[in-house]
């Protein structure tokens, strides 16, 4: 038994500064990935609404552009690598485009002038409605 302890002690002594750095680094990465991928609910689908109807529900696990004719013109919604955004809009202020990429369940972007909304859907919806 004491022999075994001695031997494992020897292993620790054999580790160099670089090895420790790798161990600490991998622990940190694991923790970081755990935080971003596990604690924050990533979305799997996006629901697109045009006016008062659901235009479509799309998987985020694809790369594609969705082109929609809204009330004032053509909007383009881009899906890429688990994210979604308005990439083109005929509206004056371009708030929807400036919202950028949406990633997490419950995130939403709306284009009021063109009456198009995006909402990310995950396994758990973090809230029922957004006080925006």
């Amino acid at each position: 038994m004491s022999n075994l302890l001695n031997r494992s002690g020897a292993i620790y002594r054999q580790l160099r500064a670089g090895d420790w750095l790798i161990i600490i680094f991998s622990l940190a990465i694991t923790l970081l990935l755990f935080q971003t991928l596990w604690t924050n609910e990533h979305a799997s689908k996006v629901q697109v609404r045009l006016g008062d109807t659901v235009y479509g529900t799309y998987s985020l696990n694809q790369n594609r552009d969705i082109v929609i004719e809204g009330g004032i013109g053509t909007s383009v919604i881009s899906i890429a690598q688990g994210k979604v955004r308005f990439s083109k809009s005929p509206c004056h202020n371009q708030y929807c485009v400036h919202q950028g990429w949406l990633v997490r369940a419950g995130q939403a972007a709306i284009c009021l002038p063109n009456q198009i909304s995006l909402e990310l859907i995950g396994e758990n919806k973090p809230y029922d409605s957004l006080n925006y």
Partner: peptide, 14 residues
């Protein structure tokens, strides 16, 4: 209870 999110003023998130 009903649960509502409060919008981040500068990000597309609650």
């Amino acid at each position: 209870p009903w649960r509502v999110g409060i919008q981040h003023p500068r990000k597309p998130a609650a």
